[in-house]
Amino acid sequence: MNDMTDAGQPFGETVYQSLRADIIMGRLKPGQKLKLDGLRDGYNAGTSTLREALSRLAADGFVRAEGQRGFEVAPISEAGLREIAALRLLLEEHALARSFEAGTLDWEAGVIAAHHKLDSHEERLEAGDTSDINAWRRSDWSFHQMLISACGSRVLMQTHADVFDKYLRYQMIALAFRPSASRPEHRALKEAALSRDIETAIRLLRHHINAGVEHALSVGTLNNRAR
């Protein structure tokens, strides 16, 4: 997930990042019209900066530009979720294998630290505390990213990050979380990483992502908003 505030970025980058984060986190809903006038105050930006940002988001796939009709947040669909999940799995499996091979002691420590944070968020979720879903989502992203971080390819990391953002949007919209199931899955993934057991890790990841998809679809919120 891209950082929201980056000093030294070209002017207009923060508006782009803010809009992107709002779409991914579900604050801007699928199909929602994005009128430049309406956005100006909320994002404290002029029309041309906003149009720039929206065009870029259209190229990214988060916004749809409909010529005369203007911009709207990209719609979601069951097929779209399945496609993105499949692509995430393809990239993450491949990256995991390379990461396990190359991973050093520092990498292991990073995995342990990321898992520790994730686990504490999931523990709270399991206990019924849903006050900071966003923090949990971020720690989930960090954990998965840490697992593949030793893969040695910037292209692979960046491509995976872009796909993960799209996957994350689906999960945010679906308001789906299943901490009692995902907690042991994450723990097992961490353990597989530490013992470099790639076969187990891939099996776990496949199950983890597929279960996440099925859960998101079953919760019902996704279907109500899908077009």
Binding site: P10, F11, G12, Y16, S48, E52, S55, R56, A59
Partner: peptide, 10 residues
């Protein structure tokens, strides 16, 4: 410049 920036950032 705004249009150019958009293109370049894409």
């Amino acid at each position: 410049v705004a249009t150019l920036r958009e293109v370049l950032l894409r």
